[in-house]
Design a protein around this nucleic acid. Structure first.
Lengths: 350, 350
DNA sequence: CTGAAAGCGCTAACAC
DNA sequence: GTGTTAGCGCTTTCAG
């Protein structure tokens, strides 16, 4: 008995069990048409040899890889990572593997090599988990014709003929601002994310919409653009305090920027929530431990990942049945407000 | 002209160009032994047909997939995500693809299916990017015999015959505590991570070592165990303030827990850094915007990922040359202190 | 119930 | 320079 190099093949198993490779194939695929004795004998050999069928060879002949391509960006941020986590869990459950690519920037122009790499490896579907920034979606129509690989897009504006899974950022922003009004705040400013992000635009529009409901004109001095970072939040609030002195509350585009806001407010002796109400967006785990704890709009990024996987697999499998895609083409998930101290001016009646 | 189903094959390219598949193969692999005219003709056909060689078929025959398996856990936390980001970047540069698996827990017992899935897909190497917790490494010796796939382990205790890439947590903790002594603090407590984590143990040992240098006995009342979360940090500091009343500084096992510490300190009117010096670990992006900004020990998780990829690829490629692995078997990267306000009791002489 | 032949898309080894 | 043959490890016919 000596150590073999490499992995045992189906042929070796067949020889050792005294059957043909077909029969081994039938056993490993749990086909019914094998006699119990044969099956058992083959299985024994498989275990002895520690044989494992090659997924590569299978993919080649079946034209099916049970692999999904995932394209992400900004894994250094917690949002994309949580989404990815939802994707890994769902894929695992469904028996799919994941081929991961990370774009160097959110608006990387060179996406062709990414597609090629995934296509070359025969992925059955692609999850485009990159936020919509600027015109980084302009290639969609162009591209979806070229390749026939099913795709699902996350965090972008729903559009015709494309499967999209997103959070309702517009609704979330409305929730935030309405909550501030309910708490008796009158002058609500906004610190937006970078305006080339679709999500930042949506959140801003939600803020504007609720102001309009309250018959208030959103003024250009009532908001400032940030870049999602705490540093930009700090800078933004400095500006805003000057250019909008009546402001008594602020809806901030994400929790990180809200942290910067709270730091500056503390330095300037502005009490939160008494002098300044603050609401963030995302509900990062730390936000409950800001000082004071931050009211925010929770988005379930994990669930987005899960839904994306489930949807794309459904498309893949219905395509196989020759059914032409007949699915609803967008999933807009609702966020949930999480009320904490930073916006509670009124004692809540419980 | 009609739409073909599926992808064009090398055979179709060969026919269309009037050459053999072998010649096409030579062209796509940029072999020198093809006449300029033939090469050009073939290339034209390739572009017209939008032909792309199948990485699957190649992997099968070359016994080489140019794919790395990555096993991670806790992607909902920022640390593992940053490491993963380093891995994606480095892999991209080196021309490798990534097959991603996430364990449901850090100490998942059932790792065999993970290995099988990666092995089935012929990964050339595996990056085990799961922190060492409890005895979740006990399978190492057992397993590395079974499979001959090269592996690299992250965030674990270096050991013989295994390639490890880690941060020097012990050194980092020493840096933190020495810094506090330099700032004139005398009674330094510790809030540890969960003690079944190797990294938490190392950080605690670093704290103990510096206390010992200063001829101080680390007492059981001078530290409390947390679980990395801000909530546990908040609880821990409450306890510590009671059981160690002389304490004037605390070294906290990570930045999240330090956030909880600062929240409680603020509530109790303990001024930071005057009454209580605080140092964290990790340098998460938010820590610069805590109130006050947090002194912490930075670990470059991104770089860990990068080094891991580079090392495993080196092993893969030297194995191919038949060289038996003759590498140093651990990389211990040094962390960097980042001094901010939370520990600055003395005006720094610049 | 089982096996033989063919082939998924590609490349290594050899001819010429 | 280029083509032929064989085969990576598996599954899909189709016989028997």
């Amino acid at each position: 008995m000596h150590l073999r190099a490499g992995r045992p093949t189906i042929k070796e198993v067949a020889t050792a069990a005294g059957v043909s490779t077909q029969t081994v194939s039938r056993v490993i695929n749990k086909r019914p048409d094998v006699s119990p004795e044969t099956r058992k004998r083959v299985q024994t050999v498989i275990e002895e040899l520690k044989y494992r069928p090659s997924a590569l060879a299978r993919s080649l002949i079946q034209q099916r890889s049970y692999t999904l391509g995932v394209v992400t960006a900004g894994l250094r941020f917690i949002g994309p990572s949580r989404t990815l986590s939802g994707i890994t869990k769902a894929a695992e459950e469904k028996g799919y593997s994941l081929l991961l690519k990370e774009l160097p920037q959110f608006d990387t122009a060179e996406i062709t090599p990414i597609f090629q790499a995934l296509h070359d490896r025969h992925v059955d579907g692609i999850i485009w988990a990159v936020a919509e920034v600027g015109d980084n979606r302009k290639w969609i129509n162009h591209h979806s014709l070229e390749t026939s690989i099913p795709m699902v897009y996350l965090a972008m504006e729903p559009r015709q003929d494309v499967l999209v899974v997103s959070i309702d950022n517009y609704l979330g922003a409305q929730m935030a601002v309405r909550h501030l009004f309910q708490q008796g705040y009158k002058h609500i400013g906004h610190i937006a994310g970078p305006m080339d992000w679709w999500e930042a635009q949506q959140r801003m529009k939600g803020w504007e919409a609720v102001l309009a409901e309250a018959k208030m004109q959103p003024d250009v001095h009532h908001w400032v653009e940030g870049n999602w970072s705490s540093a930009s939040g700090a800078q933004a609030i400095e500006k805003l305090l000057i250019q909008y002195p009546e402001m008594d509350a602020v809806f901030v585009g994400n929790d990180q920027m809200a942290l910067g806001v709270m730091q500056v407010a503390a330095q300037k002796g502005r009490r939160i929530p008494e002098d300044l109400g603050v609401v963030g967006f995302d509900d990062i785990p730390e936000s409950a431990f800001f000082f004071p704890p931050l009211t925010t709009i929770q988005q379930d990024q994990y669930r987005i990942g899960k839904v994306a996987v489930e949807q794309i697999i459904q498309i893949i499998e219905s395509n196989l049945d020759g059914l032409e895609s007949e699915h609803s083409n967008s999933f807009i998930l609702s966020p949930t407000p999480v009320v904490r101290q930073s916006s509670l001016r009124i004692k809540e009646v419980s």
